[in-house]
C-alpha cells in the first residue's frame, strides 16, 4: 500500500490508463499548461504532450460535445469540469447526447467517455458554486454516476470508469483533493462499478454516506460508539447503478437506516434510497428511514449559514438515535 493524496490517486488512475491505451485523452479548462486548477493533472502535459492533454477555452458545452463526438468516433475522452457546477451549461450534451445516442441509434454507437471533476459544496462559495449534481445526472438512464470518498476508491473506480464503454459521471470534491489515504499498489488495480463498500460493520443502525458525507457518517458512527451503539456504515461509491442490495442486507440486520447526503433533500439520492428500502424491506424497518441532507435552499455565503446548511454529524447522531428509539 502506498499513501497518496486524493488528487495523486486520480492522477495515477489517468496516467496508468493513458499509458495502456493511446485512444484516451484528457481535455478541460487549465488541465495542461496550468497543471490543473486543483493540480489533479499535474505533470501530465509533460508526460503525454499537447495532443493528449488539452487545454480548452471556457466553453463547457463545446468541449463536452466535442468529447462525445470523439467518443462516438473511436476515442476514449476524459473531460474535466473545473467544478460540476459548470456542467450546467453543458447539460444538453451530457443528458441528450452522451446518455441517449446509443439508445436512439438502436445500439449502433457507444459513448465511452468520463466526465469528471469536483462536486458539491466547498465552503463559502455561495449558491452557484456549491451544487451537488448526483441526483440530477443519476436521473438519466444511459449514464453511470460514481461518487468517491477516499483515494483508494478514487483510483480503482476512475480506472474502471475510463475502461467502461458507457458514459460515466465521476464526482470528486475540492475539499478532499489533499486528503491522504492508503491506495492499493496492486498492479492494474480496479474496483467494480456498482459495488458498495461496507466501511464499518455494526448491528444497531445502518448509515449510508458517500463522497464527503461518508466522512460525516464515519464521525457519526464514532460518536455513537462512544455512547455504546454500533453503527454499520455503507459507502455506495456508485450512485447509478446503486448497490441497493448491500443497503437492504444491512437494514435486515439493523432494522433502521439513516442516509447522509449533501444534496438538497427534494428528489435527492437519499429520497431514492429511502423509497427502495421501504419497497423491499418494509417489514424489516423499525422506524421510518431518516435522512440528513443540505437544507432545502440555495447554498448561502455567510460562514454560520453554510455550516448550518451542510449535513452535520450532530444532526446525524440525533437521527440515528431517533430511528433506534434510543432517547
Amino acid at each position: 500500500m502506498a499513501e497518496l493524496q486524493f488528487r495523486e490517486a486520480l492522477r495515477a488512475a489517468m496516467v496508468e490508463e493513458m499509458e495502456r491505451d493511446d485512444t484516451i485523452f484528457l481535455m478541460g479548462e487549465e488541465v495542461a499548461e496550468y497543471d490543473g486548477a486543483y493540480k489533479v493533472s499535474e505533470g501530465m502535459l509533460d508526460q503525454f504532450g499537447a495532443k493528449r492533454v488539452i487545454d480548452t477555452p471556457i466553453s463547457e458545452n463545446g468541449f463536452s460535445g466535442l468529447g462525445i463526438g470523439a467518443a462516438l468516433n473511436g476515442l476514449r475522452p476524459i473531460i474535466e469540469f473545473m467544478t460540476w457546477n459548470f456542467s450546467f451549461v453543458a447539460i444538453d450534451q451530457i443528458i441528450n447526447n452522451a446518455a441517449k445516442i446509443r439508445y436512439m441509434s438502436g445500439g449502433q454507437f457507444k459513448v465511452p467517455i468520463v466526465f469528471r471533476g469536483p462536486n458539491g459544496a466547498a465552503g463559502q462559495l455561495a449558491a452557484t458554486h456549491n451544487t451537488s449534481v448526483e441526483a440530477i445526472y443519476a436521473y438519466f438512464p444511459g449514464l453511470k454516476v460514481i461518487s468517491v470518498s477516499n483515494p483508494d476508491d478514487a483510483k480503482g473506480l476512475l480506472k474502471s470508469a475510463i475502461r467502461d464503454d458507457d458514459p460515466v459521471v465521476f464526482l470528486e470534491s475540492e475539499l478532499m483533493y489533499g486528503m491522504r489515504g492508503e491506495v492499493s499498489d496492486e498492479e492494474d488495480y480496479t474496483i467494480p462499478i456498482g459495488k458498495a463498500r461496507i466501511a464499518r460493520e455494526g448491528e444497531d443502525v445502518t448509515i449510508v454516506g458517500y463522497n464527503k458525507s461518508y466522512w460525516v457518517a464515519m464521525e457519526t458512527a464514532q460518536r455513537l460508539e462512544e455512547e455504546g451503539y454500533n453503527a454499520e456504515v455503507i459507502d455506495p461509491r456508485t450512485i447509478r447503478p446503486l448497490d441497493i442490495d448491500a443497503i437492504i442486507n444491512s437494514v435486515k440486520k439493523t432494522n433502521c437506516l439513516v442516509v447522509i447526503d449533501e444534496s438538497n433533500p427534494f428528489t435527492s439520492v437519499a429520497s431514492e434510497i429511502a423509497f427502495q428500502v421501504q419497497e423491499r424491506a418494509f417489514d424489516h424497518l423499525d422506524a421510518p428511514v431518516a435522512r440528513v441532507t443540505a437544507k432545502d435552499v440555495p447554498a448561502p455565503y455567510a460562514k454560520n449559514l453554510i455550516d448550518y446548511y451542510m449535513p452535520r454529524a450532530d444532526e446525524a447522531v440525533e437521527a440515528c438515535k431517533r430511528v433506534m428509539y434510543a432517547e
Binding site: 485512444t23 462525445i68 470523439a70 450534451q93
Partner: peptide, 17 residues
Amino acid sequence: GGHIPVGAGIAFAHKYK
C-alpha cells in the same frame, strides 16, 4: 444546435487517429 460540438468532436477523432 446540440449536435454541432459533437460534429467537431467527430472531426477531432479523425485528426487524432
